[in-house]
């Protein structure tokens, strides 16, 4: 029943969203945004041992205008924050942000005057990766999880609805300090 049965062999059916997501995740181009220790691990991930080229991502784009993923690798200082935002604004849509390491995720051990306490104060973050610094394997794992997220990103009006729904959920969520129980 339906269209599938009448198709000749060799033709595959999917949704536009599925194809777009597949293309996007399979040609993910990260912008170089190395800041501190994590940047070295990020470079290692692109190096021969861990070989990010296996996932088509070894080309770190020097220009943000050619990139769709910003890996914020390291501590973001108050002085760097406006620069970071500017780079983010220069990236074309659709774009994703991966906060690599605890400093980028939450400020980490540098809870002081100089460091922005989490890059999510400046740009929306799609994936948080803990570790100080995270191992290359952890970065690859985070990138693969982000691939999964990209694959399932909706398009057009569905995307707008999704954003709406996500925001409503976030607004209704209980703040961490009011949660009960073990932290997990």
């Amino acid at each position: 029943m339906g269209l599938e049965e009448k198709l000749p062999s060799g033709v595959l059916l999917t949704t536009v969203e599925g194809v777009a997501g597949y293309m996007r995740k399979a040609s993910f181009w990260p912008a170089t945004f190395g800041l501190a220790c994590c940047a070295i691990e990020m470079m290692t991930t692109g190096g021969p041992k861990y070989d990010l080229a296996r996932f088509g991502m070894e080309v770190f784009r020097a220009s943000p205008r050619q990139a769709d993923l910003m890996i914020v690798a390291g501590r973001v200082s108050q002085k760097m924050a406006p620069v970071l935002r500017q780079i983010y604004d220069q990236m074309p849509e659709p774009k994703w942000v991966l906060a690599m390491g605890v400093c980028a995720s939450s400020g980490g051990m540098f809870n002081n005057y100089a460091v922005v306490q989490g890059v999510d104060h400046i740009v929306p973050v799609d994936m948080y990766l803990p570790g100080c610094p995270p191992r290359p394997e952890m970065l690859i794992d985070a990138i693969l999880k982000l691939h999964d997220q990209v694959q399932h990103t909706k398009l057009g009006v569905n995307r707008l609805d999704e954003i709406e729904a996500d925001e409503a959920t976030a607004l209704a969520a209980v703040p961490t300090s009011q949660m009960k129980g073990l932290l997990r």
Binding site: L35, A36, G74, R75, S77, K79, M80, V83, M109, F110, N111, N112, Y113, A114, V115
Partner: peptide, 11 residues
């Protein structure tokens, strides 16, 4: 410089 100032000495 100063774009990576982390305040480690103060911490």
């Amino acid at each position: 410089i100063g774009y990576l100032h982390t305040g480690i000495e103060k911490n």
